[in-house]
Design a protein around this nucleic acid. Structure first.
Lengths: 130, 130
DNA sequence: TTTGGAAAACGAAATGCTTAGTATTTACTT
DNA sequence: AAGTAAATACTAAGCATTTCGTTTTCCAAA
């Protein structure tokens, strides 16, 4: 029986995937150019990270000219859902409501954000029940 | 200017902190006894992990008889808030509402959980404004 | 007071992440 | 067709995490 790999991205992988999601697709150079200015990575480091993302099936690449163009195989939405599920499981007894409870208890949360959240929940409840 | 360490627990550290939060406090033996049955760790591994947690200031220990008794220095609530903030920042543009949006879009979420979530948000809104 | 058993301290092996250097390939230009 | 600039493949070093073996310390019982 094999231990199920957690299927979550590491810190740097997430950083690169975030760029790919924003760009839609891109070469090593594209991704590096879109990182924050204070992020100074060698070209080869970026290439390694994208190659690893492809190995782990988070991205695919096609050859275009002399470059590889990388594209996510996983939507950001899907990955967000996966991450939330993981956090909920590990830290909130697998109970999403308690996760939201902690979130709305945060004093730094603005009234506006709270209102948005309620609107979202209401809309979803209406959709479900008619 | 020093890069701020992320202050998050690793996988195994979280596993042990979860036991400490549940127990209130405990020795190496106590924590090991409370792990799932299929989790077979050597005593020394448990000791190492708790020592690391103390080094990283997630726990303190006092001597009691010949053992160390470990106790969290951080409440689970606080750590939950910290984790949510981290996730929100890295994956949801620092917008908690979009995190909740993703959560309530999850098809596997039950009607009941949705109701609970709305009740939580409503209560918080009332408290603030009235 | 010696000694046997339990716990702690130390440290090291194994693995995976992050970063980047070197060598090789590719394709455009002349 | 050869030279060159850019991209890739390969590889490895440095570090953190996870795990545990060995040595040391401590207490308690004989």
């Amino acid at each position: 029986m094999k231990k199920k790999k957690s299927e979550l991205l590491t810190e740097v992988e997430l950083e690169f995937m975030t760029e790919l999601w924003a760009l839609g697709e891109g070469t090593v150079r594209d991704v590096l150019n879109n990182l924050p200015d204070d992020r100074n990575l060698a070209y080869t480091s970026g290439a390694t990270i994208l190659r690893i993302l492809e190995q782990k099936d988070f991205a695919t690449s096609r050859k275009e000219g002399k470059s590889h163009v990388y594209r996510p195989t996983l939507s950001k939405d899907t990955y967000q859902t996966r991450s939330l599920k993981d956090l909920s499981m590990k830290l909130f007894d697998d109970t999403p409501a308690s996760l939201v409870a902690r979130l709305v208890d945060d004093d730094e949360l603005t009234e506006e954000a709270l209102g948005q959240i309620r609107a979202l929940v209401d809309r979803r409840l209406k959709h479900d029940s008619g």
